[in-house]
Design a protein around this nucleic acid. Structure first.
Lengths: 352, 352
DNA sequence: TTGTAAGCGTTATCAC
DNA sequence: GTGATAACGCTTACAA
């Protein structure tokens, strides 16, 4: 799009050959400082900028990455995208961003389309099947986020630990029946979290977790989940992510169910929107931008000839629990005492 | 990145020449249906995908667009990006997305970097000066969003109308002193809105609008603005955008100032986060995704040889006022009666 | 340290 | 309707 200035033009003005111009511009120090300066000046004067198509044709590299996310309007993916974009740029890569709109077909299509014009691909929370993913992985340099697949580098957060902390928090507050509002059935993170729930249960005697279903991982999904949570008999609800938690908050309030007095709500991720509400959402923070930057680093490691086959990386999470939408259950008992089934009824009979 | 399969390989397998393969793949109907099918089959069998660098080198076009936004984590820009990305894709373009982090230097850098490898650029709410912008516009095919510049296509919303509706709404509710929490001083939209305020004042006798400053167009900016709004003597506050409005909401609540009873709050844009809070934010909706799709359409119009030099386009806004964070002022008077300065004191003296 | 020359994979031009 | 051939702008042996 820029000017039709070529290396030959610069070469002519600087009284050198085209190859010397090329060398001077490729950050090579194979050129005499004096000549180099002259070339750079000529290039600047002419407003030269390299034709990336021509360079890519001969080098076989594009200096571009592709990123595919399920939904840019989901603040989770917006943050990851910001992380990816920032790091890629500082490493000299531009980033194609594609939004699959949570659609598996579109996702596969986008990946195929982008794969042919980038040096590497980052797939964030891909919804496609392991088979499709594996097939693509065969001839594509890529890094996964929130998904694991043999032979493929991936960045994940410790979902088991997230769930353990969320449930441990509620347990410590005296909650013994907690409902879980799950994310998309095709979401790897959701299955990880359900596993995490199973593991956590062994450490938390007397705790019961009721799954109330799978929902779209957004605000509206939370709206749907809220009524089921209210009917589940649970005193607290853990949502697949913050957006759902906010939807649950909204619906519960609309129904006159007070949070946190009557129902505690805990989200996951600590997306930017979690602090936009009052009271602020209790949530377990995941390092969203860092997930993005780590993915870029892993991708570059894959491309460079030196390092290879990094082990899958799980980023640590932060304890980021806010006591605003979660409080001690009214039947709260010290952690050391055993469960007393009678407590619930008694306290609910007591006026004030 | 894909296989090293070239047109020659496909040509050999289909027993035709490379040129014919090229024609068959370029959606040309200059090739016999029978031959075409054979070629397509061969291409599929070999897993051929065109080398975009080689194509770009000869055609001079990349089929790529660039989009530069100030902040991907701002839901406003996330929505616009989603709109751009979706439309571009369906028109056969991939999109480089770049985030300037609200930094003018970075913005200029990004634009220069992307300009050389795309067919056109979309600059959303650019923060750079008119001079810098004009210089870039000279040798760049581009479309602006939320900014006007002579000779450059641009997509904007009707800021004057937005402000008129927001202030008209508050005025109808009886508010006579409204504070305005402005956006970045370098924001064209903000200056448009300040103009809009001046215009609106002539239609709303007795209305006073107090500017309380310029703030970062995000939640934290609203936090800063809230105290000034509270001290301004106004009974309502209009924020530059929804994120700031949410910040104002949060800070007012933290200070024990009840919304909307003691202070009405109105935002602008109706970003997705506006409905995440309870009560839902009163706001004037802008068609965010449509802004993005319209920008792509304008860009394509610029590129295609046929149409050219479209007049700047201003997208209509929607009346989307929610009566949750804005209510009648306690000194509300019918629109037909004139101002009565005594009302305020009387009502504030009345107990209950 | 610099120049010469070849060639990357594709499409456009021009024959046939 | 199809095939040769040249050319796009650049990088990289290889030579000097």
């Amino acid at each position: 799009m820029a000017g039709a200035v070529t290396v030959r033009d610069v070469a002519r003005l600087a009284s050198v050959s085209a190859s010397t111009v090329s060398r001077a511009l490729s950050a090579s120090n194979l050129v005499a400082p004096h000549t180099r300066d002259r070339i750079l000046a000529a290039a600047a004067q002419l407003g030269y900028s390299v034709n990336t198509s021509a360079r890519g044709l001969i080098t076989g590299r594009t200096s571009n990455f592709g990123l595919v996310v399920p939904d840019l309007e989901n603040p989770y993916f917006a943050s990851v995208t910001k992380g990816v974009q920032g790091r890629a740029l500082s490493e000299g890569y531009a980033v194609f961003v594609a939004d699959s709109d949570e659609d598996v077909r579109a996702e596969i299509e986008l990946v195929r389309k982008l794969a042919s014009q980038v040096d590497g691909l980052i797939l964030c929370s891909p919804r496609m099947s392991d088979e499709d993913l594996g097939q693509i992985a065969r001839d594509t340099t890529m890094v996964l986020i929130n998904r694991r697949l043999p032979q493929v580098d991936s960045i994940t957060v410790d979902d088991t630990e997230i769930v353990r902390q969320a449930l441990g928090h509620l347990y410590a507050l005296g909650h013994r029946t907690v409902s879980y509002a799950g994310g998309p059935a095709t979401s790897w993170s959701d299955s990880q979290r359900r596993n995490g729930i199973r593991l956590a249960l062994t450490d938390l005697p007397g705790l019961e977790v009721v799954s109330i279903g799978s929902f779209p991982p957004v605000f509206d999904g939370g709206l749907s989940a809220a009524d089921l949570a209210a009917a589940s008999g649970a005193t607290a609800v853990l949502a697949y992510n913050d957006l759902m938690a906010l939807g649950i908050l909204s619906r519960l309030q609309a129904r006159g169910i007070r949070v946190p007095e009557q129902m505690s709500v805990v989200g996951i991720d600590d997306v930017s929107a979690a602090t936009l509400v009052s009271p602020a959402l209790t949530t377990v923070r995941a390092p969203l931008r860092k997930v993005g930057t780590a993915a870029v680093d892993a991708l570059i490691d894959r491309i460079l000839p030196e390092r290879r086959d990094l082990p899958p990386e799980a980023l640590p999470i932060h304890l980021m629990i806010r006591d605003s939408t979660s409080v001690p259950h009214r039947s709260a008992v010290p952690l050391t005492s055993r469960e007393d089934a009678g407590l619930n009824e008694r306290s609910s009979n007591a006026k004030q």
